[in-house]
């Protein structure tokens, strides 16, 4: 058994200081991914800094935005009235993730910090550049059915498994971060990373930095939204492909749109070009099909995941149709 020290932080300042100065220290909140990784010997922190007692659970809506504390539980966010009224896409995405038991433990910050991963990352007998930099990628020539079609590198083709992240990137959320050098904010789209030559780094958080909140500015996407998740079974399965779609409609005219995909890249994948192609157009299956084709430009499949090149655009069309209310 691997020994580790456990500390319950009483203030944000001490939590950050403790974690920043110790290379082997990690924050723990719900622990739904970290404890898993520790049990398998993939992640081996020697010090766990429990942040559950920090006052970061609140969900409130001050001027023009919803602020969700990093320790708010996934289930609490999904059933929060402010979220349901103003950002229902986020609630839908959260409810599509994991299982009820996990959503009751997992926090918003923890959901963002869950590892981008694949079965080769989890199997310590296999090579994985993310787990052991330089050891190679087992998935590249292996069983890569669940893997990326966008933004991958020859070092890593894993996908980010979070559903919540797909909604947050679509909704242009902002991440609030506190660290040893002070506070900063990062647009959600810049929080997670593509693998490049450093697949071991999933995101741009520095050592000792702590996510304190996620903010979503008020937007007109509170009515015509849909999160579509396609998976091998109806619950507790990662997405083969997922789509977060939000439309701002004036009659049948698209005044604004947000579109993002999950299960296709190392980070939640925003479909900016497809969004541009939709603005000003009239709602129709044909319009959505054109946008889906634009969205898929640059996608490339591997031996076992090429089905995503078809499933992806189909899912985009279906999500947009459902969001628009076209049967």
């Amino acid at each position: 058994m691997i020994q580790f020290q456990y500390i319950r932080a009483s203030t944000q300042k001490t939590a950050i200081e403790t974690t920043a100065k110790d290379a082997t220290a990690m924050f723990i909140a719900g622990g739904t991914n970290l404890v898993d990784l520790m049990k398998r010997g993939i992640t081996t922190p020697q010090k766990l800094v429990d942040i559950n007692n920090l006052p970061l659970k609140n969900i409130d809506a001050s001027t023009g935005r919803i602020r969700i504390g990093a320790l708010a539980l996934n289930s609490a966010v999904a059933e929060n009235k402010l979220v349901l009224d103003r950002q229902p896409l986020l609630a839908q995405a959260l409810n599509a993730g994991a299982s009820a038991q996990l959503r009751n433990m997992a926090t918003v910050g923890g959901n963002m910090m869950q590892r981008t991963r694949c079965p080769y990352f989890y199997d310590t007998a296999m090579p994985c550049n993310k787990r052991e930099p330089g050891s190679g990628c087992g998935a590249l020539e292996g069983f890569n059915r669940m893997h990326a079609i966008f933004g991958f590198s020859d070092k890593c083709i894993a996908v980010n498994p979070s559903d919540m992240n797909v909604a947050l990137v679509a909704l242009d959320a902002t991440v609030h971060i506190a660290g040893p050098k002070g506070n900063r904010t990062v647009p959600f789209i810049n929080f997670h990373r593509l693998p490049g030559d450093l697949p071991q780094k999933d995101n741009n958080l520095e050592k000792g930095e702590l996510i304190t909140a996620v903010e979503i500015a008020d937007n007109p996407f509170n009515k015509h939204v849909h999160y579509l998740k396609i998976r091998d079974r109806a619950s507790y399965a990662f997405a083969l492909v997922s789509v977060a779609a939000a439309l701002h409609l004036d009659g049948n005219t698209i005044k604004g749109v947000r579109l993002a995909m999950g299960g296709v890249a190392h980070k939640p994948w925003r479909l900016t070009e497809a969004e541009k192609a939709l603005v000003g157009k009239t709602v129709s299956e044909g319009t959505f099909r054109q946008a889906a084709e634009i969205a898929m430009q640059g996608a490339k499949g591997f031996k076992y995941n090429s089905f995503k090149l078809k499933m992806g655009p189909n899912a985009i069309v279906e999500a947009l149709k459902t969001a628009a209310g076209i049967v």
């Binding site: 079965p119 080769y120 989890y122 199997d123 292996g142 069983f143 091998d232 079974r233 109806a234 619950s235 507790y236 399965a237």
Partner: peptide
């Protein structure tokens, strides 16, 4: 690829 029932999909309540 899979070494536990988390990765080996059997139907869950939502499927039945």
């Amino acid at each position: 690829m899979g070494f536990d029932l988390a990765g080996y999909h059997v139907p869950v309540k939502a499927d039945v």
